[in-house]
Structure formats: C-alpha cells, structure tokens
Design a protein around this nucleic acid. Structure first.
Length: 198
DNA sequence: AAAGAGATGGTCT
DNA sequence: GACCATCTCTTTT
C-alpha cells in the first residue's frame, strides 16, 4: 500500500491508487503533492491537496468516455501515473490515474495550499498574491512546476521526482461534496470533493 | 462583487 | 471547424 516510512511520512504506492476514482479522490484530500526540483528552480515544492474531481470511463464528462485515443492512453494505463493535458490551449492540468490497468479513470487536482517552496511558487506564478498561488487546476501546476512533459510520469516509480505523501493529516470526515465545474456534460454527478472552508 | 470577454492550441468530428 | 476538466484582465453594478 505504501513505500518507505521516514518519520511518519509515507509515500503512497501503486496499490493505493489502484482503486476507483471517487474513493481515491476523497482520500487524496489532505495529502501532500511534492515536486523535487533542482535547487536553481527553487528546490522542493509541496502543496496540500484541498480540492479534487473524479473522472471515470463510464462518465460523459471524462476524456476517456469515448474510448482510447493517443491523448488518453496514459489514463487507461496503470495507476499512480500522471495524466497531464493542455486545457484551453494554455494551461496544463494534472490528474492522478486511478483504478486497475486498462480502466480509464483519474482524479483531477483542482487546488492545493502551498506548503513548501512558496517563494519559488510566487516566482513561477508571476508574483501573484498568496491566495491565488495554487487555488485552481491550471494555477497549481504552474506553482508546482508541473508541465505537459510530465504526462505519463510515474508517481510510484523508484526515485520519482514527483510523489504524493501522507504525512498523517487525515482527509476531512465531512468533505464538501458537489458537482464538478467547468464541464458541460454530467454536471449533476457529485464527484467534486474539497476540504471545508478551503 | 459580479459579469463579460479574450487568449491560445491540441484533440476529435 | 467546433469544442473545450481555465485564467486573467476589464467593465459594470
């Protein structure tokens, strides 16, 4: 279920991600996403996940709903990989692939709270105010230095520079659950989860 | 505080 | 050629 254990912090492994997207989505709240960047790029950047959305194959709003395409191969692949796509021709949006290999499921990361490397995040975000640093799917990728080239990156791979950590902060017992946003189909499916008051 | 619109490019029909 | 899993800036209450 997890790799390693240094000081109560565990890196989530492939099996953890190999469950259905709505389940993984709810449990991702409170976890840390960490990007080990070169010192010249500000070093370690980390954010606490506070908002996510689940997408499955059996879901008209999902990129995988109409079957496999070159773009969605990663999402149909094994869990714990990153599916990064270009949104509106401008923004990189990051998903964590979930479910068994062959299933087209993923969880979109919609918002994180900056935890480490905040100065570098500000720089990458063009010096924007702290609240606007990573409170959107396109903003958090820019803040964390996640780009299109990370599409297919294995979060559970040995020595991966990107990973998701459980540092003992539990998901909220009563997350805010509601409809997903920015989509035109299946808008009533309540697969958006966020930490209250975030 | 809210509403409107432009930017910008891959993907699929 | 239409459609976006968005963000930012400008204009209007």
């Amino acid at each position: 279920m997890s790799d390693r254990d240094d000081g109560g912090v565990r890196r989530l492994g492939r099996a953890w991600f190999g469950r259905d997207a709505p389940v993984v989505a709810a449990e991702l709240l409170g976890k840390l996403i960490v990007h080990e960047l070169p010192a010249g790029d500000g070093g370690r950047a980390a954010g606490r996940i506070v908002e996510v959305e689940a997408y499955t194959e059996d879901d008209p709003a999902s990129h995988t709903h109409r079957g496999r395409t070159p773009r969605t191969e990663v999402m149909f692949g094994p869990p714990a990989h990153l599916y990064v796509y270009l949104s509106y021709g401008i923004h990189a949006c990051a998903n964590v692939v979930t479910g068994p290999d062959g299933d087209g499921q993923a969880v979109l990361l919609r918002a994180v709270v900056p935890v480490e490397g905040v100065e570098a995040m500000r720089a990458r975000r063009g010096g924007r105010g702290d609240r606007a640093l990573a409170d959107g799917p396109g903003k958090l990728t820019q803040a964390l230095g996640i780009e299109l080239r990370h599409d297919g990156h294995d979060l559970a791979g040995e020595g991966s520079t990107l990973s998701i950590l459980d540092d003992g902060v539990d998901p909220p017992t009563t997350p805010v659950v509601g409809p997903r946003v920015g989509i035109t189909r299946a808008t009533s499916t309540p697969w958006r989860f966020r930490v209250p008051s975030g």
